[in-house]
């Protein structure tokens, strides 16, 4: 049996939305190098919709795959949907993660929520 599902391996090998958005209006960074995982999310929000999202990740295969899947789940979505994104949804969309790797999906959720909070702070808007 493989360590990861095919979907995890696909998102790990071909991560979607990798990179930086120079004029992002919401940026979130979570994790720390000591623990071995850092995720940075860049959001470009227009009219309460995620027009573009990119990520950078230092971490294991499931951390990279979780970041990639999380960006796919919120791209083009209204902010109200982004707010509802959970780690469970990320893990499920990846056809599951090994138990000891669930924290990678938690990190992805936190990175997105942190970027959203940054957007709120910058614009003074409040997302329900």
């Amino acid at each position: 049996m493989a360590l990861y599902s095919e979907k995890v391996m696909d998102h790990f090998r071909n991560p979607r939305n990798v990179g930086v958005i120079e004029d992002a209006n919401g940026i979130g960074e979570v994790g720390n190098a000591k623990c071995g995982d850092i995720m940075k999310m860049y959001l470009k929000i227009e009219d309460d919709i995620v027009k573009d999202v990119k990520f950078e990740t230092f971490g294991c295969g499931s951390a990279i795959a979780s970041s990639s899947m999380a960006t796919e789940l919120i791209k083009g979505q209204p902010l109200s949907e982004v707010r509802k994104l959970t780690n469970k949804a990320v893990a499920e969309a990846l056809d599951g993660l090994p138990d000891y790797k669930m924290h990678c999906s938690v990190l992805a959720e936190e990175a997105i929520q942190s970027a959203l909070a940054d957007y709120e702070k910058r614009t003074g808007k409040h997302v329900e």
């Binding site: 790990f12 623990c35 995982d37 294991c60 295969g61 951390a63 990279i64």
Partner: peptide, 21 residues
């Protein structure tokens, strides 16, 4: 990070190990 390094090396047919968490 070491695990992603190992997985990508495995894709290239190289089997190794790492001391990452």
């Amino acid at each position: 990070e070491g695990e992603s390094l190992l997985l990508l090396l495995d894709d290239k047919g190289i089997q190794a190990s790492s001391g990452s968490a």
